[in-house]
Design a protein around this nucleic acid. Structure first.
Lengths: 137, 137
DNA sequence: ATATTTGCAAATAATTTGCAGTCGA
DNA sequence: TCGACTGCAAATTATTTGCAAATAT
């Protein structure tokens, strides 16, 4: 996605396409490893020396409100963010600390877990354990 | 579960059954609504005037290590705790803020979602939305 | 033009840490 | 007794807030 496409995406969602929001959204799109607010901040100050932490939080808030970004409660100590908003699972490896995304063979399976009468808006499946690569050792 | 049963449960798990740990564990067992560390603290200082927040965190840590308590990433701003350690789902209602527990029709279903080659230790299914009761209005 | 957004510094809130005193086996 | 546990106060860390200056439509 190039910048003008990003601008129109944000506009269509009803939020002003400021440089900062575009930068944050672009960073999330190109870094699917679920960065924290601080990770995004550190990466973006490099590129745009004037960039504050407040703005990262503001931008993430706006993007979440617009439905373009998801907040994932993966870590106990900090929030992680994800530009993939369709239902998918997360696997957190205790060994290497990485967060892996995985799809579902049948997406309906997850919805079927939701109790009757409850209106599901967002569904998360989250595993903790040892990942494929760390287990090999 | 009475106190002497609790003492033997903690002992068998290899942690010292101190009064504070027993009180915290008992509180979690009798309050399945996933209290936060602060909620537990406020409830327990009433009963045992000398009880510090540090001890809540220490006790929770020990209980988690012993496999008797689970930490649930339900809220963005604080950790919640749960004495049910078997796999089960959580539903967070945006309207009333309550967290509902629910079982799975077939527990194997959740494990089947875990990607091949990854060793699952803990599995969480978490839904956000509107609960049965709030939806009625 | 003007309402929204940014960015700084200070505030808040959850959790952790250092350490002296206490408790449990 | 002795090492593990508690509790206080201070430290740390993620996130939020107030407000003046900058920016987008």
């Amino acid at each position: 996605m190039n910048d003008s496409e990003l601008i129109s995406v944000l506009s269509r969602r009803g939020i002003r396409p400021t440089q900062q929001r575009i930068a944050v959204y672009k960073y999330l799109l190109t870094h699917p490893e679920h960065p924290s607010a601080d990770t995004i901040y550190r990466a973006l100050v490099e590129e745009y020396p004037v960039f504050s932490r407040t703005t990262i939080y503001n931008s993430l808030g706006a993007l979440i409100e617009a439905g373009l970004v998801r907040q994932v409660n993966i870590c106990a100590d900090e929030q992680r963010f994800d530009a993939t908003v369709t239902d998918h699972g997360h696997f957190f490896c205790k060994e290497c600390g990485k967060v892996y995304d995985f799809g579902f063979d049948s997406p309906a399976m997850v919805s079927r877990l939701c109790p009757r009468g409850f209106i599901k808006e967002q569904g998360d499946v989250f595993f903790t354990g040892i990942c494929k690569h760390c287990y090999s050792f």
